[in-house]
Nucleic acid binder design. Structure first.
Lengths: 337, 337
DNA sequence: CTGAAAGCGCTTACAG
DNA sequence: CTGAAAGCGCTTACAG
C-alpha cells in the first residue's frame, strides 16, 4: 500500500501538488490535476486519515459521540443532528463509544484530540464528579444529550438537554390512577440505568401520593433493558401480587416483554392488566395490542442539542414528553366509565 | 490541551520516558514512573491517537467493520467475535460504517491505513466488480461476513462466511407447503437489500415448484426492513388476495409489521393466516403470538469468521440456518392433521 | 501554478 | 534507566 510520496513520484510532481489535488484546492493546473487524479485512481490510493488529522487545522467538525452501540432511540436522534449540523455547513463525525470502563468525559477529550473537533455532542453516558477535571480542560463547546449527570458535576463547562424524567413518569402513572387503578406495579430499568430508573421511580411515587394511594415497595421490580427482563419481572410480580391491575414500565422494551408474559399467561391487555411503557419506540406501537408509552421528544432533542452547541451560551434544558395513549390501558374493574 | 512535550517539561524528563510510561514499558525507574504518572493524571493528559497510529507498528489489531449502524443482529455477532479475538490475544477495533456512497472495499483500505490493522472482518455491505482492485491491494487477511458478494468479485483475495439463503428460504416455505398451504405470499426486503431479497425469493420459488404449486408473481411484494413496510405490504397483499393463507417474510421486522396488520384487521394468527419470519431475532419471539422464524447461526458466524481470519487460507463458507417453529403456523384449512 | 521544507504529536531504535 | 533524534504520512505557509 502506497503513500503520497509514491503517488508524487509516479506522477513526476511534488507531494504538495498531490496534496492539493487530494483536497480539491483550486490552484492546480488542469492537466496536472487530471494526470495526478488518474494515478491516484489507478493505484487505489487512499490518504492516511491519521496523518491528515494530525496536521490539519480544525475545520468545522462536530463530533457526535454515542454511548452504547445499538440503540434505536439514539439512532433517530443522530439523523436529526446530522441534518441540523450540515445545515450550518459543519460536518458530523460519528463515534460509537462501546460500554467500557473508561470515563465518558475522557473519551470526549480523546476524540477531540484525535479528530480535531470544533464541538462535541455526547449522547447518553454518565458524568460524575470524576468528569469535572476533564470537562474543565475542554476548550470547545460541549452538549450532553440524554446523559446521566450527577448532581456534583460542575455545570459551568457544558450545556445539556434531557427530559423531565420525574414529571414524565408522574404523568403516566397519574393517568393510570385516574383510570381507577390503585395497585400499580413498577418495572424499572434500575439494575442497568440507576439514574433514569431512580428519577422515574420518584415520578411514579409522586403520582401515587398525589392520588392518595399508599406506596407499596413490594410493587417495585428492577431489571435490565431487555425483553427477557420485562417478561420475568412481570411474571414474578403478577404471580406474587395478583391484585395488581396495571404496570408502569420505565422502558418500551421492558413493557413489551411484560406484555408478552401477560398474554402468554392467557390474560388480556388491557382488560386484565393495563400497561404503559416509556420511550415511544416502534416496538411498543407494533406490539398487539399497541402499548401506550411516554414518547421522548426525539426531534426536539436533536435540534436543540445542535442549537445549544452553536449558541455560545451554557444552558441546561429539560424537555417535556408526551403520553401516547394506545390500546393497552383501560379503566380498572369496578370503575365507572 | 497539552501534549507529550508539555508533560515531559513539567516532569523534567525527556519525551521518550513519558512515552515509556504511557505505554507501560518496563524499563523505567519506579520513582520516575510515579512522578510522571502523577503529572499525567493531574493534567488529565490523553495521548493523541492519530499521532500514535501514525507511528506505531501494527500490534495485534483486528478491525471489525459493521455496515449500517443499528442492527441488533450484527450487535450479537460482534460480541462473539470480541470474545474469540481476545482469546487469541488480539484486540478488536470496532468501526461503524454509516450507509454512504463510498465503496465498502474502499472503507476497508482506509481503516487499515488509519488504524494499522493486522486483519479485518467486514460485517454486511456490498462487494461488486468495483471492489476487486481494492481487495487485491490489501496485504492483510480479510473475512467478509454476511456480505453481499456479486458473482464477478474475485474471491481469491479474501475469505467469506454467509448463510445459504436459497436453502434457508426453501426450508421455511417447504414447511408451509407441507402444512397444506398453497396460496403463500412473499414479503421481501428487495427494495433495500436486493441481494438477500433475490436469493430468498429463489428459495421461495423452488419450494413452491418442489411442491407442485404454480408460481404467482402477484403474491410477491418488495419493501424495506421496517415494521411499517411489513404492515403495509401485508395490508396490500391480503386485501387484494383474500385467498392467501400463509406469508413468508424475508425478515423478522417485516414479519412483525405484517403480523400486526393481521391482528389489527381482526384476523387470527395462525388460524387465519400463518406467518414465518427470517433472522430469528427477539422481535419475533416476543411478539404475541411468537412468530416462527429462520434463525441465523449467529454464534457460528462470529466464531468461524475469526477462525478463518487466523487460518491463513482463503475459504468461502456457507452456513446452515435453523427453522424455529413457534406459534405462528398451523395447517391450512381443510387439511387433515 | 509548483516544490522543498517545516511540523502535527507521537514511538522507537540508538547511543550513552 | 534515560534523552536526542529520526520518522510515521500528511498539510500548509513560503518562496519562486
Amino acid at each position: 500500500m502506497n503513500n503520497i510520496k509514491d503517488i508524487a513520484k509516479l506522477a513526476g510532481v511534488g507531494v504538495s501538488t498531490v496534496s492539493r489535488v487530494l483536497n480539491n484546492h483550486p490552484d492546480v493546473n488542469a492537466e496536472t490535476r487530471i494526470k495526478i487524479q488518474k494515478i491516484i485512481d489507478s493505484q487505489n490510493y487512499i490518504p492516511n486519515r491519521s496523518a491528515r488529522n494530525l496536521k490539519m487545522t480544525p475545520t468545522k467538525n462536530i463530533g457526535v459521540i454515542v454511548k452504547g452501540s445499538f440503540n434505536p432511540f439514539f439512532s433517530e436522534i443522530v439523523e436529526i443532528m446530522e441534518k441540523n449540523i450540515t445545515k450550518r455547513n459543519f460536518s458530523l463525525l460519528l463515534h460509537y463509544n462501546p460500554i467500557c470502563d473508561t470515563e465518558d468525559a475522557e473519551i470526549i477529550i480523546e476524540q477531540v484530540k484525535e479528530k480535531r473537533l470544533n464541538g462535541v455532542i455526547y449522547l447518553g453516558g454518565n458524568f460524575s464528579k470524576n468528569s469535572n477535571s476533564y470537562l474543565e480542560s475542554l476548550d470547545i463547546p460541549l452538549v450532553l444529550a440524554s446523559s446521566n449527570i450527577d448532581s456534583d458535576v460542575d455545570k459551568n463547562f457544558f450545556s445539556s438537554i434531557s427530559i423531565d424524567n420525574v414529571q414524565s413518569a408522574f404523568e403516566a402513572v397519574d393517568y393510570l390512577c385516574q383510570m381507577g387503578h390503585k395497585n400499580i406495579g413498577l418495572l424499572s430499568s434500575g439494575l442497568i440505568d440507576e439514574y433514569n430508573g431512580k428519577l422515574r421511580t420518584i415520578g411514579y411515587e409522586k403520582a401515587l401520593i398525589h392520588n392518595n394511594i399508599p406506596l407499596n415497595h413490594k410493587y417495585h421490580r428492577d431489571g435490565f433493558y431487555t425483553f427477557d427482563s420485562g417478561y420475568n419481572m412481570a411474571k414474578d410480580i403478577l404471580t406474587i401480587h395478583p391484585e395488581i391491575t396495571a404496570l408502569f414500565s420505565t422502558s418500551d422494551i421492558i413493557a413489551v416483554g411484560a406484555a408478552k408474559y401477560i398474554l402468554s399467561a392467557g390474560r388480556n391487555i388491557p382488560e386484565d392488566i393495563s400497561i404503559i411503557g416509556f420511550d415511544g419506540l416502534e416496538y411498543s406501537e407494533f406490539f398487539h395490542p399497541s402499548i401506550s408509552s411516554v414518547k421522548q421528544p426525539i426531534e426536539a432533542i436533536g435540534e436543540k442539542a445542535v442549537e445549544l452547541l452553536f449558541s455560545n451560551t451554557k444552558k441546561h434544558i429539560l424537555l417535556q414528553t408526551e403520553l401516547i395513549t394506545r390500546n393497552s390501558v383501560c379503566k380498572a374493574k369496578g370503575e365507572k366509565i
